[in-house]
Design a protein around this nucleic acid. Structure first.
Lengths: 249, 249
DNA sequence: AGTGTTCTTGCAAAAAATCGAAATACTCTA
DNA sequence: TAGAGTATTTCGATTTTTTGCAAGAACACT
């Protein structure tokens, strides 16, 4: 067993479960706890996970954000995910777009909650497989290598045939006037279709994305029913949305 | 043994297993460990693999493997996968069912080969994401938790709209008289649809599955164009298939 | 406070890497 | 074809890395 293999295995476990126990890893890999501890220390030093007493936890997966913001950002996304889950009721049919916030949401779905979940996102589908009470329906189509979601006519076609209770629309840019925007044309088309397929549209969005603008428009703010940020609903940064017909959470 | 030969051998091993041990290579190639070490150092310097203590790993190693379940008869399945790849030509459109043999096939696809690849299997889709020249099209539908492929009407519907060059149909049971059979009715429906969508049907199957029989029938042997096992085509265990209109590989 | 568990530290055995020198193979020229 | 020169491989001695173990300190939980 190469050290590199153990490292990858540990990182993979962390990705899936968000946390690992030293003893579990040692057991699974059939090596001593000391070795695992040393491995985790190295991964910690190279900022690939966070070492804590008894194991390690994930840093979050947004690789682009500046160093030191990683944990912070995950913290925000977790808060958003937790708020989002309160909107979901047993037995509902939901639609999850791609993005790390929604991945976090998928990870935190209570395993005893019965749901039907549509998604075009490969990582989210993999995550949802671990939830035994969730029926997962994958929106097929051409896979985009970098966003890891399906795009294109076939996927949009499949979306056109459904009507779900809630759609959680991972949001990269929201602007009080311009609404939701996106830089990738194909993804815009997907998100438009997703909005059209949903009775209720929820936009989980970390506050630093508020006010930003991209090339293509997805929809106006009037098409969004709920905006979830990590902030309190009365925060001053959300003022621009207060007069709108839109629930803040 | 030329240096170049060793280099190619090592790279191939890395491509297949994602990692190699110095001692293994030295053993297989009947050269000293020092030589292998030097070879790997050269390959490392030319960025063809990553040298680590005790061996080397593939450069794209950090892309996570979906479900780290242990694969039985990996050696045989690798042989089958290698034979299967010889059937694929640049630019073709192929269809991969689920199963570990096909996962092996996906892993070993040369990364420079341009292909379009349909699949209803989540692990295979994840694996194919690492192949930059392969267009991946995921067959959407309801995800079966244990087989990790999509099933049901929607998936079958999507299959009904395509016609691919070759289908690699992971096979759990093949019988000279009864043909291909399967344990799960939903998967039977998927496989039937896959056969219908393909000009050529290839059945990769490890020899121990030959002669076995399950509850539901997928198709007769006449629907299979090529049968690939880890055995030599003239092996006595394959006698029953020799008189049939079916290529053995 | 008490009781397990987890961390740190130091150490020793085993495996692997490094380095230099010797042996072998290969190429090119006279 | 002999022989010099170069490249490649092997071998041995030494150093480094890795790993598991143990004793005591630090920690979490009741």
């Amino acid at each position: 067993m190469l050290k590199e293999e153990r490292h990858q295995f540990i990182l993979n476990e962390v990705r899936i479960h968000n946390k690992v126990l030293l003893t579990d890893i040692a057991d699974l890999l059939k090596v001593s706890v000391d070795t695992v501890r040393r491995d985790i220390k190295e991964l910690h030093n190279s900022d690939q996970l966070k070492k804590v007493h008894g194991g390690a936890v994930s840093l979050g997966f947004n690789t682009y954000s500046p160093v030191g913001k990683k944990v912070y950002s995950l913290e925000k996304k977790s808060q958003i995910a937790e708020k989002a889950i309160t909107l979901i009721k047993e037995g509902q049919v939901i639609l999850l777009s791609g993005g790390t916030t929604n991945l976090e949401l998928a990870r935190r779905l209570p395993s005893k909650m019965k749901l039907t979940c549509f998604t075009p996102s490969l990582p989210i589908a993999v995550q949802l497989l671990t939830k035994s009470n969730v029926d997962v329906i994958f929106i097929g189509g051409r896979l985009s290598k970098d966003s890891q979601i399906t795009i294109g006519g076939s996927a949009i076609n499949m979306l056109s045939e459904i009507k779900v209770d809630i759609c959680f629309l991972g949001t990269n840019s929201i602007h009080p006037v311009e609404g939701l925007t996106e830089f990738d044309w194909e993804i815009v088309q997907m998100k438009k279709a997703m909005i059209h397929s949903s009775r209720k549209v929820v936009s989980p969005c970390i506050s630093e994305k508020i006010g930003s603008l991209q090339r293509y428009k997805i929809c106006g703010t009037e098409d969004v029913d709920v905006l979830i940020t990590e902030l309190e609903p009365w925060d001053i940064k959300l003022d621009a949305f207060k007069t709108m017909n839109l629930q803040l959470l």
